[in-house]
Design a protein around this nucleic acid. Structure first.
Lengths: 219, 219
DNA sequence: GTCTATAAACCGATAGAC
DNA sequence: GTCTATCGGTTTATAGAC
């Protein structure tokens, strides 16, 4: 997507990602980034001009590359499905896929955390991120919801999408206190399955309340 | 609650609150706090020993003073209520009170933002905050849910409480992008009413799905 | 393009006068 | 308890050799 990311630039972006996600823009030093990228202290300023520019580049990198399987596919499938059973299955699959895409069995979850942090913290490129990432994705999500539940108004679909986003956002952002609260070391697969099951159940109850012809499939 | 907060100490705590909420612990300098509090640069270290201690003190101040009407009152009332209509009314009132307590018509909303930031960012006193603030409050909330919906297991009540927290958390944390997304300047009362109405509807659908004998009261 | 060296500013914390 | 002055450390950013 962005061929101008050569070796060092790419290394800097990939080193900065997890650091920004964990410590924020102000809490991450150029030195820490350079050290992690095995690059020189001056590399960031040479390649990006400033730390803020690098932050923007990292967000662009995350947004254009590593997002989950497109929501639009589910929406298209939902629009062509009539059977109550198939529609229910489709929604359940979407929620599960979507939930677990933020908690891969292995690998870093800093993409999600960085996105979440960008939501919370005013960043130099927030307007850009909203327009280029959140708006299109949210639009697809609303389309999926309205395909499943044709009776919903636009505003209701928007709020339902918020409810969906809120659930996953919460488990990502509040991970540290949740773990302390539950006296756990890390989210284990069993907990994630329970959480995903609860979210699915809540979303089904919500959509059914709004008139969707769906029933929670037996596990 | 804490009588040892005299003039200057109180001024420092009240000056630091909004700054910590907006810029975080690392992003807020002692000098900025002192300037806002019209105090000397050395005042923070003199009165609190360190910036981190001040942060903890601010959180304690927020937690012990400005939180909403205690959840325990609702729980106690719910445990003594049998009528389906009264129980429904009680739950609806609780959700509305609780939602709107985070969006007062006037006055600062930095309390909520600071709490949210504490959720996101590892702070020196997170364990303390979890034990002293989140755990008791969550316990009361779970109690309320189980009083309304006696069939729920402990784990189910915990997840339902998470769902409740997630909804409000989302509207606070993601406020900036939501406003950009909706092309609004600020949450207006009409939007907040719609949002609260949606949250109420979702929670009712969820609790009914878990077996609670409640019905959404007509507005 | 990569490195060293360093400038210029800022930070938290403290010593000491008042 | 409040203030000034300052220390020691870190930050971003840059100048200049290679």
């Amino acid at each position: 997507m962005n061929p101008s990311l050569d070796g060092t630039k790419l290394a800097l972006v990939e080193a900065a990602g997890p650091l920004f996600a964990e410590h924020g823009l102000e809490g991450t030093s150029i030195r820490a980034i350079a050290e992690r990228a095995k690059a020189n202290v001056a590399a960031v300023n040479y390649h990006f001009g400033s730390k803020e520019n690098l932050y923007t580049e990292v967000l662009r990198h995350v947004a254009t590359r590593v997002m989950r399987r497109p929501v639009g596919e589910y929406r298209a499938e939902a629009e062509g499905t009539r059977s109550r059973r198939d529609l229910s299955q489709l929604v359940a699959e979407f929620i599960s896929d979507w939930f677990h895409s933020y908690f891969p069995p292995e690998g870093p979850v800093w993409h999600a955390r960085l996105m979440m942090r960008t939501l919370l913290e005013p960043s130099p490129s927030l307007q850009q991120i909203v327009d280029q990432v959140f708006r299109p994705e949210h639009s697809e999500l609303e389309g999926l919801l309205r395909a499943v539940c044709p009776g919903m108004t636009e505003e209701q679909a928007r709020f339902c999408a918020f409810t969906l986003s809120a659930q996953i956002t919460f488990f990502i952002m509040a991970k540290a206190p949740i773990l302390l609260f539950l006296r756990m070391r890390d989210y284990d697969p069993a907990f994630l399955d329970s959480a995903c099951g609860h979210v699915t159940r809540v979303v089904f109850a919500m959509l059914r309340d709004y008139g969707a012809p769906i029933t929670l499939p037996a596990t």
